[in-house]
Simulated scan of single mutants.
Amino acid sequence: MASSNALKKVVVIGAGVVGLTTAVKIQEKGGYNVTIIAETFPGDPKTIKYTSLWAGAHHVSHAANDAKQMAIDRETFDVMWELSAPGGPAEHCFLRVSQTDYLLDGRDECLDWMPDFKKLPEDSLVHGATAGSSFTTVNIDTPVYLPYLLARFLSRGGTIVRGSVQHISQVVEGGSNLFRHGRADPEPVDAVIVCPGLGARTLGGVEDKDVYPVRGQVAIVRAPWIRSGRTLSHLEQGLWTYVIPRRSGDVILGGTKQDNDWYPAARPETTTDIIERCLALFPEIVPPAIRSEREGTVEDVRALIVEEGCGFRPQRKGGIRLDVEWIPGREGQAKVPMVFNYGHGGGGYQSSWGSASIALELLEKALATASES
């Protein structure tokens, strides 16, 4: 093993699913001492600033004909499939389910690589759908999976610091101890990995105005009898209805897709609309005892709600940003590589491991270039 003095010191900004996964990937590679700096970590009270906890979340790629994005999503699925295997290291974070997707716009989702994939015959489609498919996927229990990632990172020797970074230069000059102790650490940072989600809009040294929020509202109901997922989508028009069960017995009902909508709380009328759409798509969300006697109603589902909320998906015009910039180091230090990994929109979980692999590759190439110069 390399001595601690030989380890490259890397700071990751952001502790959402993308920041955590990227930090794990780099730390486990070996040769790095990784510190995550973030305002919010898994286990903290839910906040609108921490979108990852509000995600559905299931692995259903929307990459379609985007070959690069599809490769990222497929790598992520392979990792999650292995993690979710019976007896696997993170089985408790996932639920393998039969998923049914109905499409209102006739596009090809390009998901024929998913386990048990089948195209649905026309006579089995719901009203208005032009196409559909079924396959097996993994649903992620976000309040369980995010602490798993954090614990995995810490167990491999990673460290965390709670702090609010206003400008990248603060990290480069002051190191992580600036946020830990309020003073600069004389030991320089070798690289910075930028995974701030929506914070990329305002983070000094980045300030990417192509990043914008896509508001997603959900209702979480207690319905442990639901063990399959269903989605009805017309993404071109922003219509998106989904029922996503979790291993815990909670079921996520959604959703909405509202660009540049900054309202930070659940709207009651939107919750009602979500329930109506989900009930029409998946009547089985009503308790079996009620359905045995009569048709379920919106109020029957509303009675199951344990939580309502919303999150701001960190969308970016042009898709995920995965590249490198060189920025001035502290006094007496050469330039430092800044690796970007943000702009995942609603696909943070689906693309987390694949984009982390690219970020690691960019980091290693940049550091190799620096050592040669």
Rank of each mutant, 00 (worst) to 15 (best):
F153H: 12
E28A: 14
Y32T: 02
G204P: 07
L198E: 02
L304D: 11
L150P: 04
Y263T: 12
T272V: 10
V214A: 15
E284C: 01
S233V: 12
L178A: 04
I274H: 01
E207M: 04
I320Q: 05
Y148W: 15
L279R: 05
T202L: 04
T369N: 09
F312Q: 07
A55E: 03
Q237W: 07
T142G: 00
G309C: 06
Y145Q: 08
N341W: 07
G309P: 04
E299P: 03
G343P: 11
R107S: 12
G319L: 04
K46P: 05
I140A: 11
W353Y: 13
Q166H: 15
L146R: 11
L203Y: 07
P89Q: 06
G205M: 02
L367I: 05
P115E: 03
E325I: 05
L304Q: 15
S228Y: 08
G132E: 08
L360E: 06
V251D: 12
D323L: 06
L239Y: 13
D185Y: 02
I160R: 04
N260Y: 10
H92K: 12
I285L: 15
K8D: 03
Q217I: 03
K257W: 10
E307S: 14
R222Y: 11
L104R: 13
G197S: 10
V10E: 00
L232A: 02
Y212M: 13
I290H: 03
Q27S: 11
G182F: 11
P196M: 13
L103D: 07
H92T: 04
A334N: 13
G31D: 05
Q27Y: 04
Q27F: 11
W54P: 02
V301D: 12
I226E: 11
I358V: 15
G229S: 15
Y145P: 10
H344T: 09
C278D: 14
H58G: 15
P328C: 03
A151Q: 15
I305E: 12
T47A: 13
G311S: 05
A90F: 02
A55H: 01
A200D: 04
T51Q: 06
P288N: 06
Q315Y: 12
V306W: 01
D101A: 09
V336Y: 00
R330C: 01
